[in-house]
Computed example of a mutant assay.
Amino acid sequence: MIKAYLLGLSLLLLNTSCGQTPTAVKPEASQTFSLTGIPEGTRWPCQDYIHGYNSSEMSCLRLPEAGNGHPSVDVLIAYPDFTPAQRAKIQDAVREFGQQWEQMRAEAAAPNESSLGKCIEASASRELFAVASTWPEIARNTPAAIAWAILNVQYMFEHHANTRTILTVSPIDRSGIMGMTNLGSDTANSENGNIMLGLPSLNNSSFTGLSFSGTLLHEWLHRKGYTHPLTGYKDPDFTSTLIVAAGQCMRNRSNSYAFSLFDNSNIEYE
């Protein structure tokens, strides 16, 4: 017994002499779990939206914090009136859009300084602002136009998130277009993002989810009042507008030197 005590004491003195003060082992922090094994308080994507869609009929677009009072938001996008193959392509488009939007936010505080913004700046020279835009004439230039356009789309997403209004994508059986929507305005932050996508284009295997990610941005800019001539992709006055350049930059992942202008298809305009 004495030998054991002396042995323990000697080990204690040895540890202390090496600068190792004996400490008690701290228990790991506990975490409350529900009966499913998932931590309580876990928030699911778009959980605050009330809907009856299944997972193949919708996507939750999760947008990162944009700074200056623009928190991360969830936007529920529903597209139930399409075939399974068409819905899969729309899901891919929403996913691609979300990834590029997140990359834009991660690259720079100002959207015009991101890869996407620089691509748009290299291509856009006409109709840089929405019809009857609230942006002051004296401060209009291309970098400001790009930042303002992105902010307007952000306002649209925030409207859906704050009001828990589902953004709907509907089909339109019309050839020669990728998408269509009603012209909105940048004077109101209550514009919804509801758009239509062309069924013939969705059924065309040449057009991928990446192709339609540019269409999403294009149509959402229409909802905020941005326009282009009703000519087509072979018209330089058409392709040099901000709304067309933005869509093309997204569908080409910000590579302005690889623009696909639909020359080999029946697409006229969006």
Rank of each mutant, 00 (worst) to 15 (best):
124 A>C: 02
191 E>F: 10
69 G>C: 09
196 M>D: 09
3 K>S: 14
30 S>V: 09
259 F>A: 07
206 S>C: 05
202 L>C: 00
247 G>Y: 00
74 D>P: 02
96 E>D: 13
220 W>Y: 06
19 G>L: 05
105 R>Y: 09
14 L>N: 02
159 H>G: 07
29 A>R: 12
27 P>D: 14
187 T>G: 08
61 L>F: 06
92 D>M: 10
53 Y>D: 05
152 N>F: 01
111 P>V: 13
113 E>I: 03
34 S>V: 01
105 R>L: 08
252 N>F: 03
77 I>D: 02
222 H>S: 08
227 T>E: 14
198 G>L: 06
160 H>I: 09
247 G>Q: 00
10 S>A: 13
185 S>D: 03
184 G>H: 08
53 Y>A: 06
193 G>N: 09
41 G>V: 11
105 R>D: 07
112 N>F: 07
223 R>K: 07
146 I>L: 08
143 P>Q: 06
196 M>S: 11
127 E>I: 15
28 E>I: 07
9 L>R: 11
51 H>I: 11
153 V>A: 07
10 S>P: 04
116 L>G: 04
59 S>A: 15
49 Y>G: 00
79 Y>V: 10
57 E>Q: 15
179 G>T: 02
64 P>Q: 14
185 S>I: 02
149 A>N: 02
51 H>Q: 14
105 R>Q: 13
253 R>P: 04
67 G>N: 11
201 S>M: 10
149 A>T: 05
1 M>Y: 13
88 A>M: 00
211 S>R: 11
71 P>T: 15
134 T>Q: 14
126 R>W: 02
55 S>W: 10
192 N>K: 04
215 T>A: 01
2 I>F: 14
160 H>W: 05
14 L>G: 06
262 F>N: 11
144 A>E: 09
31 Q>K: 08
268 E>Y: 08
254 S>Y: 12
200 P>H: 03
252 N>S: 12
151 L>T: 15
49 Y>F: 14
60 C>Y: 10
109 A>L: 15
42 T>R: 11
228 H>K: 02
238 F>I: 01
144 A>Q: 11
21 T>P: 02
116 L>S: 08
3 K>H: 13
118 K>W: 01
26 K>D: 04
263 D>C: 02
81 D>S: 04
73 V>N: 06
170 S>Y: 10
177 I>K: 03
142 T>K: 09
236 P>F: 12
222 H>G: 06
242 L>M: 15
223 R>F: 01
189 N>Y: 07
61 L>V: 04
135 W>T: 07
143 P>S: 08
255 N>R: 12
89 K>Q: 10
208 T>V: 04
136 P>L: 05
104 M>D: 04
109 A>P: 01
